[in-house]
Design a protein around this nucleic acid. Structure first.
Lengths: 196, 196
DNA sequence: GACAATACTCGACGCTGTGTTGAGTATTCC
DNA sequence: GGAATACTCAACACAGCGTCGAGTATTGTC
């Protein structure tokens, strides 16, 4: 199965498949993407496709790995920081918003739908975010930078899911602002004594 | 196209298809549901299916209408109320959680994935929630029951999407509690002067 | 209780899309 | 130049969707 070293024709074709997929998936929903489209874009026959990838899903997974890396990277500064830090938070959200704008159809299917094919990818990404997010929340509370609130794990989970779902529907600047506000209030905001 | 009045054999079969679908969809993801399964469950042949419904999607839409009604109904008391009202809010969330538990696969596909087939249904449900939610937020602010915050429309949108996404992943009691807390803080919580 | 209209049923067909196989051609390394 | 490996493809088998046309059952009406 191994390839030779150096950039061979095969490598270029593999890349061409990936690029075609990336391209088509900025507009086409995952369900409508066919292998025929991919091979047409890459200039090979349907059956040659199977030399490079086991299935359509394998292509999508390769793309997702590239995207997920970018996403977590952008959140790094905020995740590693502490206390209410609107600028880092906004930066993380802005990059996320851009990624959702560029790869909406793919991310929606992989992160939101329940597609069994992406289950493990989804669990990994979400779990990673939740773990680091919960740690940050717990840290802030311990250091007295945030008041008490819901279980950090559960709170982080809700906020991450909110981010995904909002950007899936709307990755505008306003959405970034609103998410920023909700996250900050959820983490640092205090409820008045008892609502009227 | 019209049927005769009274409950005919045809009506019973139509119901049988719907029930079979409801049943299978409590465990099977939408993508895996085939018309063959539906007709097997209802005891008719594949082609007879098309006498009752135009497509698989038509069956799903019929089911979704039933579910959506219940969902909005459960939120009625909170949507029509005013001020911080944890009990009404919790009640609405609890019913929602149950519906997601029972119809998870279907709701996930219809509300979260970008399936073009459900686009209009999705827009309707979300738009309805957002409209009523935004109105409630604006009302509370006008009456001085809530402080300032993000644009009501945008805030309502984020909170609704969060609800959908969280329940899609986890409709436990704890999730209800967390959502309750986040919604209340987002609407009524105040941020301290300036962080750190 | 016949008979027309309408409700309902189904087998057979064509289509699109997936994935496999086996035989072939190109490339690279020695 | 020859063997190993990279790559290519036409042909096939299969699953699922939706259509067509020819039927059979049921019902309302006289």
């Amino acid at each position: 199965m191994g390839r030779r070293r150096g950039t061979t024709k095969g490598d270029r074709r593999e890349r061409a498949i990936l690029d075609t997929a990336r391209d088509l998936l900025s507009t086409t929903p995952v369900g409508r993407l066919t292998i025929d489209q991919l091979t047409a874009g890459a200039g090979i026959s349907r059956s040659s496709f199977y030399f490079y990838f086991d299935s359509k899903t394998a292509v999508l997974e390769a793309l997702l790995d590239e995207i997920a890396e970018e996403m977590v990277e952008a959140a790094r500064r905020w995740l590693d920081g502490s206390g209410d830090d609107p600028d880092s938070l906004r930066h993380a959200l802005e990059v996320s918003a851009r990624l959702w704008r560029e790869h909406g159809p793919l991310l929606r299917q992989a992160l939101l739908a329940e597609d069994q094919e992406f289950a493990s990818f989804r669990e990994n990404v979400v779990a990673r975010y939740v773990k680091e997010g919960a740690a940050r929340i717990a840290r802030d509370r311990q250091e007295g930078l945030a008041g008490p609130g819901p279980d950090p794990q559960s709170l982080a989970h809700a906020l991450i899911r909110m981010k995904f779902a909002v950007f899936a529907a709307d990755s505008s600047v306003e959405a970034v602002e609103t998410l920023c506000a909700v996250v900050r209030r959820a983490m640092y905001g205090a409820l008045p004594a008892t609502g009227s």
